[in-house]
């Protein structure tokens, strides 16, 4: 029994110290004087890597999720004779939940793991240590641009995901299943509030972006520099980031939409 309690204590302490290290890394990376010109360019480079290269997976998944929503929603709503509410259903589920959450999950798998592996490889091949020896802080040079790129890219990807999803829903609902185009869009417009739904979705997405990218760069920076360490850290990034996104989503939803 005492053993067990000691175990609980030990793991709590180690989690706390991990959290502390992660926080320190983040703070050191994003604060302090830096060469704005150079870092801006590095950030743009990283936006290309984590954002632009994730576009295809985001667009394809967005389209399919929108289409599935259209199809499923139609069959259910048709039972109640409310097919015209299809637009509302598709748009609300996308803007509020599916857009930010699914994009963040895909992002964690596509870009987050790549970030971890890249930083980890730089650590394993002593490139980070070498930067330090040259007198360049790797937190600012390597970690900060990647962090900002993630924070910029994910909300944009999320917006694209939602838009493509709505179009996918319209494609199935209006073009294939014959819901009236006017009432599809009018219903959508009547029920979706820009400030409540779209803006809240964007806020969620920004929060997820910070968390996912933070986990990814921390796992990369803090890993054991061996090939095994890199593969384990990559897995951890995806698992931790996904759990964090889903957990946080509940709290954010409760704060934004649920009057608990």
């Amino acid at each position: 029994m005492v053993e067990w309690i000691t175990g609980v204590g030990r793991s709590t302490l180690s989690h706390l110290s991990n959290l502390g290290r992660a926080t320190l890394i983040l703070i050191q990376a994003i604060t302090g004087r830096s060469n704005v010109g150079v870092h801006w360019r590095l950030t743009i480079d990283q936006v290309y890597v984590v954002g632009v290269l994730s576009l295809s997976i985001i667009i394809v998944s967005g389209l399919f999720i929108g289409m599935v929503l259209g199809l499923q929603g139609y069959t259910i709503l048709a039972d109640y004779g409310s097919e015209q509410a299809l637009g509302q259903m598709v748009a609300l589920s996308l803007t509020r939940e599916l857009g930010p959450v699914v994009t963040a999950l895909l992002f964690a798998g596509r870009a987050g793991s790549a970030l971890t592996a890249e930083i980890g490889l730089m650590k394993a091949t002593e490139q980070l240590a070498s930067l330090e020896m040259i007198g360049v802080d790797p937190l600012r040079r390597v970690v900060a641009p990647r962090f900002w790129a993630g924070v910029i890219s994910l909300p944009i990807l999320s917006l694209i995901f939602v838009s493509v999803g709505c179009l996918g829903g319209a494609l199935v609902g209006v073009s294939w299943l014959g819901v009236d185009s006017g009432s599809f869009w009018a219903n959508m417009q009547a029920s979706v509030e820009f400030s409540d739904d779209v803006l809240n979705g964007i806020i969620k997405s920004v929060v997820f972006a910070v968390v996912v990218t933070w986990i990814a760069v921390y796992q990369g920076y803090d890993l054991v520099p061996t090939s095994e360490g890199i593969s384990r850290a990559t897995t951890k990034t995806v698992v931790h980031a996904s759990l964090a996104v889903l957990g946080l989503d509940f709290f954010l939803t409760a704060i934004m939409f649920g009057e608990i």
């Binding site: 091949t125 002593e126 490139q127 240590a129 070498s130 020896m133 007198g135």
Partner: peptide
């Protein structure tokens, strides 16, 4: 960092920026 500017270091693997 100023001190490190006065030091050079050659790492085991070379550690070139790939």
């Amino acid at each position: 960092f100023d001190l490190r500017r006065r030091m050079g270091m050659l790492f085991q693997s070379g550690a070139l920026f790939t």
